[in-house]
């Protein structure tokens, strides 16, 4: 008769061998999925931030048509489910490119890269939320800051770069760190269009080994670890952005 402690030890051994990096363990597959998730989120971030910034600029401009164009953009991408946006981009782009190719007389089956489709869809969603964050940060900066810049003879671009932008970053950071966490979680959706991210890799492992709870639990823990790591990094960035305020 085995005692329960032995039973637990045997189970632990089995789990560890399932998660090992050896050929019959799934550690390496899951690690590659983690890499895909993180690189997708990191690749989306700069485009999303830049687009969000310019949309916020358009939203607070005095020109009504510019505001209207920006508001249509955010209404669409904040109103559609992220999954549907992803499908629209993935299948829509495929359809569009295919039609363009047949119009030009090229007969090939064209496949859109799932990574790029994920980047475009997630970037569109991220930028529309980011524009709201930037907009409220813009509104928190008093108009005198601009006037001061112009009064000392800076051009509007210089005023933006040297006076407004540093304050804007400080005001927008908490909101942006929230959006980054949402982006990280939204990357899970690209598993549906065939990108081998964390969810897809653990899904395969779960089907092969029939240990679904273990593997999906590990996926959840990995996302939690990424979230914790992100908050540490954002803590550093926030301190860096506020470094001038601490000077007494």
């Amino acid at each position: 008769m085995t005692c329960p402690i032995d039973g637990i030890a045997i189970e632990m051994d089995r789990f560890l061998s399932l998660l090992s990096f050896s050929p019959d363990g799934w550690g390496d597959e899951i690690a590659s999925g983690l890499l895909v998730t993180v690189s997708l989120a990191l690749a989306t971030l700069p485009f999303g931030l830049a687009a969000g910034f310019f949309i916020a600029l358009a939203k607070q401009s005095s020109e009504p048509s510019l505001r209207l164009a920006a508001n249509i953009y955010t209404t669409i991408f904040r109103g559609l489910p992220e999954l549907l946006t992803l499908f629209l981009v993935f299948y829509g782009a495929q359809l569009g490119v295919q039609q363009l190719a047949s119009f030009l007389g090229i007969e090939t089956a064209i496949e859109i890269n799932a990574f790029v489709a994920g980047m475009v869809a997630l970037g569109a969603v991220f930028s529309s939320y980011a524009s709201e964050v930037f907009l409220s940060a813009f509104r928190a900066i008093p108009h005198g800051q601009y006037e001061g810049g112009w009064a000392v003879g800076l051009s509007s671009f210089q005023t933006m770069r040297l006076i407004i932008f540093p304050q804007l970053v400080r005001l927008a950071l908490p909101g942006l760190s929230n959006l980054w966490l949402i982006l990280l979680k939204d990357t899970a959706l690209v598993s549906v269009i065939g990108l081998s991210d964390i969810i897809r890799q653990v899904g395969i492992a779960a089907r092969v080994t029939r240990e679904a709870f273990l593997f999906f639990g590990i996926a959840c823990l990995l996302y939690l670890a990424l979230a914790m790591l992100s908050s540490v990094v954002f803590g550093y960035i926030e301190r860096w952005a506020r470094r001038t305020e601490d000077v007494k």
Binding site: K185, A188, L189, I199, A219, A227
Partner: peptide, 8 residues
């Protein structure tokens, strides 16, 4: 709040 709804 820290894990994707899909994973849950």
């Amino acid at each position: 709040r820290g894990t994707p709804l899909l994973a849950q």
